[in-house]
Design a protein around this nucleic acid. Structure first.
Lengths: 298, 298
DNA sequence: ATTTATCATAAGAAAATCCTATCAAAGCAA
DNA sequence: TTGCTTTGATAGGATTTTCTTATGATAAAT
């Protein structure tokens, strides 16, 4: 392992450029002896002489000529590292790996991604869609930078910030459109269709009906909201979906959508990230962007 | 100008490789706090965090990942500079610019070049053929590494080492082959053909005849030994040429070659270089090669 | 709750770097 | 020649950097 220093390379480069110890030292803002010593040191370390010390002139040796080119390469690379650092701290740049739960992703992401792209054109966005526990795990493993999930998460190592709150809507078959609005309790007596286990939305729906979460009650659990709505449309029962999903999911299904009243079931959606994440500062800014893009519901 | 150090890059690279401050510090043969401090220092200098300090784990930030690649590039380049230095000091490598006077070059160089090529295959040999004063000047200007000239040169800034001594031969027209050998003094009375001004060989020949060097006596000065011999062959006079030139120059000319006796005119040919030249050590070795290749006269 | 692992911090020691002053050599001028 | 000037090398001491040991803090593991 060779033990030259960048400082020596800088001094040497200046010396090569000025061809004069005094001038080079001045350019480096040090005294001439300091430069002399460093050059000498560098020559000793390399075991080869870099300059020919003639009287009245400083001339590079053949090796010196080769060395100064290498030195310039190295110094340039070091500068570039600095540039890179500056770029990475000024703007949010590079990769942002964001996880989203399936009951939010299809409805929120299009708007979020386009908003992020506008604000940070150089940001490369990776999306991961899966259930909350997996997102939390991957966040912890450093495979994700942030996740959009239902709050609270209550992990000490994670920071969380609320984004918005969304209401759950009742989805009934079109024929039931005029029936009276069931209460949370009467809902329990109806055939309530749910997502499969693992989805937090399943638990939130059950909780609204004061039912315990747990193993499936019937073999009717769906793997997506879209399927749920189709099942309702086929007359298999009723379900709840987040308000944000309504426009997308009821476009091609003849179902009736109703808003609950008093109490209105809701959940808070928020963003979480590792407290130790170096992006922490910028993730707050990203949360702002997500928040405002979520508000502008089309 | 960014102020990171190669040391920091080394430490950071080790940290990235081991993913552990303690291990990395051990690998760098320093204490763990020293490494911690240098990493911290580097992050401050760059103004961007390189690693995410989670409990129980050290993970590179996105910028850290980019940075470690750059760091490896830089470190590799520095190592290469060391390799280059080693190569340049072990073997004589690169360019050797050698100047030779015209009365030696054509006869000596073929052998010298092939001998040098055998000993130092990676040596790139540049040859300059001109008269001694120009060679000395170019040596002083650093345009040549060494020169082969007639000694002495007597320049305080130049080192000189003798290579060999060569005799001057008398060249007469073939018809004069049986005439008695002229003495140095009788030579003065004959029509002595000489090289043009500037060639040291001209002065050496004049000096042998005890004639003052100076402006041309007649308008018959030749620009090469080859021309001189042709002129002799044409019956225009007599001349002297170095012994080494005989085989080459008399091949296609019908002239008579005679050796002087008591005193035999000679000159010493040697190699000179700047005392301050970094090649000084190796030039002695090269002188040896030249010397032995000159002895093996074919 | 205690122990362990791991990185950060602190304080003093060691090393490096730098500066001022001075020297030495060589070119230049009188 | 004899100073005089320029230029790089050297020396000694001050300053800054870097390192080590000792200790602290935090979270995981037991």
């Amino acid at each position: 392992m060779i033990n030259i220093t960048l400082k020596q390379l800088r001094y040497f480069e200046a010396l090569a450029r000025h061809g004069h110890f005094g001038k080079a030292a001045e350019a480096c803002a040090i005294s001439q002896p300091a430069l002399s010593m460093q050059i000498k040191e560098m020559e000793e370390t390399l075991g080869a002489s870099l300059i020919e010390r003639g009287p009245r002139q400083v001339r590079l040796t053949h090796f010196g000529e080769v060395a100064v080119e290498r030195a310039r390469d190295i110094l340039r690379a070091a500068e570039e590292l600095g540039d890179l650092a500056r770029a990475s701290r000024d703007r949010l740049v590079g990769r942002l790996r964001i996880g989203v739960i399936p009951t939010i992703a299809p409805y929120l992401l299009p708007r979020v991604i386009s908003a992020l792209t506008v604000h940070h054109p150089e940001l490369e966005i990776h999306v991961r869609e899966t259930v909350t526990p997996k997102l939390i795990q991957e966040l912890g493993e450093g495979k994700l930078d942030t996740a959009i999930v239902a709050l609270p998460v209550s992990e000490a190592s994670l920071a969380e910030t609320p984004l918005f709150s969304e209401t759950f809507m009742l989805v009934r078959s079109a024929s039931e459109a005029s029936a009276p609005l069931p209460s949370a309790d009467t809902l329990r007596e109806m055939r309530l269709l749910l997502l499969e286990e693992g989805h937090c939305f399943r638990d939130q729906a059950l909780s609204f009906c004061n039912l315990p979460s747990g193993p499936p009650r019937e073999m009717l659990d769906a793997s997506s909201l879209s399927t749920l709505v189709q099942m309702v449309s086929a007359g298999m029962g009723v379900t709840l979906i987040p308000e944000m999903a309504v426009p997308v999911e009821t476009r091609s299904a003849s179902v009736s959508i109703s808003r609950f009243e008093n109490p209105e079931p809701t959940r808070t959606v928020g963003m979480v990230w590792r407290k130790s994440s170096p992006l922490a500062g910028q993730l707050n800014e990203i949360a702002d962007i997500v928040r405002s893009s979520a508000e502008s519901r089309p």
